[in-house]
């Protein structure tokens, strides 16, 4: 079972503040982390590999410092890391990103399964997984919360829907996007993480030429969409105090949460 995991390095948004004037994210001094959903994808891949054998490759597109995401993935037990980094990749929208990742996956060639997180906490689009599957023309299952069975040429995955679950049988190779319920990610092992820092670590760094793309096809130039402005939504918060005894207040609260489709 050869598995590719798509990993994105993102700013730790639990620490991120918005500039009150511009509404932009203040990224200075903010730690970069592996996108939380991607940790679950990594865990699933390493776990599957441990039972079924094969090779796990972590693939990431990002600036050179995204190497830390690759190193952490190697620390978790991934066999090989590939960092796609090139000035030309900068400013990519989800289309250009999926295209770039797709090209790299074609270059990797051998794979049975591609795992990625449902969505990245900085962009929140949830588009990359499905678009990569579309580019590669392989089946996709999104919002996977359990991989029930897996065989040489097919798997059964359970996915989370708004109001229940769905059990999906799917041929391989396939792409799954996974959610946090799937598992508890392990922490990297010290020795493995240290090995990842060494020159002879199993890490490849590819640029645009390495994956055979023109700079016009990738990054900002290759993007079909352009962000005009980022801003913080203005919430008009209204506080309302519930009244009555605990039973009444809880009943009232539950009613309103349901009414607003929050639960």
């Amino acid at each position: 079972m050869d598995i590719i995991v798509l990993v994105k390095q993102v700013p730790d948004t639990t620490e991120v503040k918005l500039d009150p004037k511009t509404g932009n994210l203040i990224r200075e001094g903010v730690e970069s982390i592996i996108n939380p959903d991607d940790l679950h994808a990594l865990e699933a891949a390493v776990d599957l590999q441990e039972t079924h054998g094969g090779k796990v490759t972590a693939l990431s597109m990002g600036p050179p410092q995204a190497i830390d995401a690759i190193s952490e993935a190697l620390g978790m037990g991934v066999h090989e890391g590939i960092l796609l980094t090139d000035k030309a990749f900068g400013g990519a929208d989800t289309w250009a990103t999926s295209f770039t990742l797709g090209k790299a996956i074609e270059k990797i060639e051998e794979y049975d399964l591609i795992l990625c997180g449902r969505q990245a906490i900085d962009g929140d689009t949830a588009q990359i997984g499905p678009q990569v599957a579309d580019y590669l023309n392989i089946p996709q299952v999104s919002y996977v919360c359990e991989i029930e069975t897996i065989e040489e040429d097919a798997l059964v995955a359970k996915t989370r829907l708004e109001d229940g679950f769905e059990r999906i049988h799917c041929g391989l190779p396939a792409l799954l996007t996974v959610i946090g319920e799937l598992n508890t990610p392990r922490y990297p092992l010290m020795g493995r993480a240290l090995d990842a820092c060494k020159e002879k670590a199993p890490i490849k760094v590819w640029n645009a030429a390495d994956i055979g793309v023109q700079t016009s096809q990738v990054g900002l130039e290759g993007s079909l969409t352009h962000v005009i402005k980022t801003f913080a939504p203005k919430f008009k918060r209204e506080t309302e105090m519930l009244e009555g005894d605990t039973r009444e207040m809880v009943g009232d609260l539950m009613g309103r949460l349901k009414e607003n489709r929050l639960i």
């Binding site: 730690e31 190497i67 830390d68 190193s71 952490e72």
Partner: peptide
Amino acid sequence: IRSNSEALIRKIMAT
């Protein structure tokens, strides 16, 4: 391109 081992271990432990 490789991670700095001191920064990486600190990051893993800090998390």
